[in-house]
Amino acid sequence: MKTFKRSYWSLPYVIFMAVFVVLPLVMVLLYAFRDGAGHFTFDNFVKFFQTKEDLNTFLYSIEIALITTVLCLLLGYPAAWILSNPKLNRSAVTVMLFILPMWINMLIRTLATVALFDFSRIPLGEGALLFGMVYNFLPFMIYPIYNTLNKMDRSYAEAAQDLGASPVKVFLKVTVPLSMPGVWSGILMVFMPTISTFAVAELLTMNKVKLFGTTIQENINNGMWNYGAALALIMLVIIGLTTLLSDSGKEVEDETGGLI
């Protein structure tokens, strides 16, 4: 009886979430499938496939997100591996230094990158965009991989070594496969925010390059709510698909928990 009653304590929050989490997503759906007059329509989606500029921005954003993810993986995996290897790194402070930038305002980090490029007299453009993206999201790749590697049972690698595998072989055949859950969650944590960023690209390229997030923002700002909602829905679908894909790539939730 008592426990029954105490579960009611979640009610205020359930109501709050119904209004501020669920209802807003329903609104996105409603706006996406309606025209300005409120009639049901698929026009917003048809418009997206017919507007060459938006479609191109969409594809270009996916391309940038993919490149960023690959670069982060190439730079981040060795770092995560070194951080988790007790022979090469013992300091918890170094680990913390890698994680802290995740929590610094993205805008401040982006403007700092712009400042760095100005300071080095390197012109802004696609190079700056990729640098800024990698700089912004690298910690999100390192952290989950580091977590998996850290939790990994080292005796597997030792056993492989004892059985005569070369260090390279141990790494490729034991360490890498065992770290795959972390790699998947890192890919997810880099790809998803990269594809949905806005404002970052314009600042890094002096408005030369536009990403899909900006297209959505501009439409919403210019009062094209229905079309903007449809674009947001398309982004949600892409993100949902990515999550499903990496879920089948292995349990993700565990790797992102722990130390914030």
Binding site: M17, L25, M27, V28, T197, Q217, W225, A229, A232, M235
Partner: peptide
């Protein structure tokens, strides 16, 4: 169900959270 809905704002990209709330308020 409650835990799932609790996860949504953490998983949603900022821009989606922002737009969905914007549409709620204008709606």
């Amino acid at each position: 169900a409650v835990t799932f809905v609790n996860d949504i704002p953490m998983l949603n990209p900022d821009i989606i959270t922002g737009i969905s709330l914007f549409l709620l308020f204008v709606g």
